[in-house]
Each structure stands twice: as structure tokens, then as C-alpha cells.
């Protein structure tokens, strides 16, 4: 599905985008604020520009090395198959969904289902045991943070918080 070579190029593209954003911000937002020119005191753009240029040079070096020195095809060992990627992708998907719903439904309505889903993704069989375990993990941590550290966890639109 995705080999080491492709991942290397993906990271190069990622850093190239970051460099582009640095220059875009210097020429728009920072110029409009008047902090993109002047001496060391006024010029807030000089330092990030220098760092971006440095990263750019290193990136070109890395790209050249990847282009000329890397094998043109990945070995099977380097290849990440869909089967291997399923678990982390599902884990990140569930976690992202959880974070999205946390502000809306609150901690107590979202956390136990999230843990159950993660346990199932990680290979646990559906049973009463995993439901109990998930609830135990969720409420133990909630108790520790809310009762002892006085953290108010997200209550969501229903304002669900347990007065421990």
C-alpha cells in the first residue's frame, strides 16, 4: 500500500508546505502588521525566514539523496499493507471522532463507548468484561481528575458532570 520511499517523499512534501506557509505569512499577515522589515527589534520575520531557508536547503539535500541513492522500488518488508494499517487508522479515526463529540456530548457519554470501540479494534472479543473494564477506566480517571485535581471535564450540551 505505502512504502518507505513514498513516506519519505510525503514528509518532504509536508515540510515543503510548511516552508511555503512561512513565506506566505511573511508576505501577507506579517507585512500587513509592519513586522516583516526593519532591524532586529522590529523585524519579527527575519528569524522564521532564516529557519525556513535552512530547512529548505536541508530538504533539497534530503530530496537529492532520496532521488539518487534510494532503491527505485520498496522491498516487501518496507511496504505497509492495508491489513497492518487497519488498526492504527481505525484507532485514529475513533479517537478523532471522540474528540469531535467530546465538546458536544460530554466526557461521560462519549468515553466508555470510545474505550469499548478501541478495545474491539485492538482485538478484544465483545463481552460484558470489556464493557465493565471500559467503564472502570473511564470513571476511575474521571474521579481522579475531577475529585482530586479539581478539573471540570467537558459536560457537553447536557452539562453532565458527576458531583463526586
Amino acid at each position: 500500500m505505502l512504502g518507505k520511499k513514498q513516506v519519505n517523499w510525503l514528509v518532504i512534501v509536508f515540510f515543503a508546505i510548511i516552508i511555503a506557509v512561512v513565506f506566505q505569512q511573511i508576505h501577507t499577515s506579517m507585512t500587513e502588521q509592519g513586522i516583516a522589515t526593519g532591524g532586529p527589534y522590529d523585524n519579527a520575520a527575519a528569524y522564521p525566514r532564516a529557519i525556513a531557508i535552512l530547512i529548505g536547503l536541508l530538504l533539497m539535500l534530503q530530496a537529492a539523496v532520496s532521488w539518487f541513492r534510494e532503491p527505485t522500488t520498496d522491498t516487501d518488508a518496507d511496504e505497509l499493507t492495508m491489513k497492518q494499517a487497519y488498526r492504527p487508522l481505525a484507532l485514529l479515526g475513533i479517537f478523532a471522532l471522540y474528540l469531535g463529540l467530546l465538546g458536544v456530548l460530554g466526557y461521560h457519554l462519549t468515553t466508555t463507548p470510545m474505550i469499548i470501540a478501541l478495545l474491539l479494534v485492538c482485538g478484544a472479543r465483545p463481552s460484558l468484561r470489556i464493557i465493565v473494564t471500559a467503564a472502570l477506566i473511564a470513571f476511575t480517571l474521571a474521579y481522579f481528575f475531577e475529585a482530586h485535581l479539581k478539573v471540570v471535564l467537558p459536560g457537553g450540551i447536557y452539562g453532565l458532570n458527576i458531583p463526586w
Binding site: V21, S29, D42, A44
Partner: peptide, 11 residues
């Protein structure tokens, strides 16, 4: 920015 008090990359 601590010197110029301008905003950098805050979008």
C-alpha cells in the same frame, strides 16, 4: 513576538 508584539502564524 516578544519584541515587536506582532502576531506570527496565528491565522
Amino acid at each position: 513576538d516578544e519584541f515587536s508584539t506582532g502576531y506570527r502564524f496565528t491565522f
